[in-house]
Computed example of a mutant assay.
Amino acid sequence: MDSIDYYDRYAVPYYEETVDFCMEEQIERFVELLPESADVLDLGCGSGRDTVFLEEEGCVVTAMDGSEKMCELASIHTGKEVLHLRAEDMEFDDVFHGIWACAILGHFPPDEVKEIMRKILKALKDDGILYFSVRKGERNGKYNGRYFYDYDREALNHLLDAFPNITVLDIWKTSDVRADKSDRWFNVLLRKEKQD
């Protein structure tokens, strides 16, 4: 069972567990870097929780998830069509002012995550903004049906250093929004620079 299979199988409990989480601080920091009425991709939108908040902040959001069942639930929650597409299969080119990728990249092993990052950066317009979060820790493997790769600061820097066309705007740590979890997260904001 890969991670998408997990989300298809456990879509309803996952939706119920995550739909009311508050990512307000991170979203506001992301949105203030975007132009007015920015086109934003909510990559791996899950319940659609962040899509709703981004739209309330004035963004025009494309919600996307690799799990068909999560797309169905997110569509009900957001009142809009949700694109059923895996991150590794997307082929956007210069489309979005911003991409919101909350807790997505940690589902890809180190030998695959750079290709996902390339696709994300290709989807961004020049001067576009990417927010992503990865769990701080030491996991590398399957846990309860999902693959996780956690990061320390060295591994995070190694990933970011592979992309010369970005400027890292901020990296900060936050605690998990789930009261029963003690996880810590790296939050990253970066800008895609114009190519010469």
Rank of each mutant, 00 (worst) to 15 (best):
I120Y: 11
R135H: 08
C102T: 08
W100C: 11
A74P: 00
A123I: 05
P110S: 12
E68V: 10
G48T: 00
T51V: 10
H77T: 01
L34W: 02
R86N: 10
L41G: 11
W100Y: 15
G137D: 09
K119V: 11
E138G: 00
L121G: 09
K80F: 05
D42R: 02
E115S: 14
R139N: 12
L43Y: 08
M117I: 13
H77L: 07
Y131C: 08
V31L: 04
F30N: 05
D93W: 10
L34H: 04
T62I: 13
H107D: 08
R146P: 07
D127L: 04
L33Q: 02
D65W: 04
D89S: 13
R49T: 06
L41W: 07
M90G: 06
H84V: 15
V82P: 03
K69L: 07
M117A: 13
P110C: 01
K80I: 09
G141R: 06
V40H: 04
M90K: 06
V31P: 00
F53N: 00
R86I: 00
L85C: 15
F53A: 13
G48N: 00
G48F: 00
F92H: 12
G66R: 02
E56M: 14
E72N: 08
E81D: 14
H97P: 07
P35N: 11
A38V: 06
V40D: 04
V113N: 01
V61S: 02
I76C: 07
A74V: 00
E56W: 04
Y131H: 14
A101Y: 05
K125N: 10
C45D: 00
D93T: 14
D39G: 08
E112R: 13
D127Y: 04
V82N: 05
E88G: 08
V95K: 14
A123F: 04
C71S: 01
G98L: 11
G58Y: 08
E81Y: 10
E81K: 14
I99R: 04
K80W: 04
G106S: 13
D93Q: 13
M70W: 04
V134S: 02
E115G: 14
L41F: 11
H97V: 09
L33E: 02
G48E: 01
M64K: 02
E55I: 01
D93C: 12
D89Q: 13
M64E: 11
E32S: 14
E91F: 05
K136W: 08
D39H: 14
K142P: 00
R86M: 12
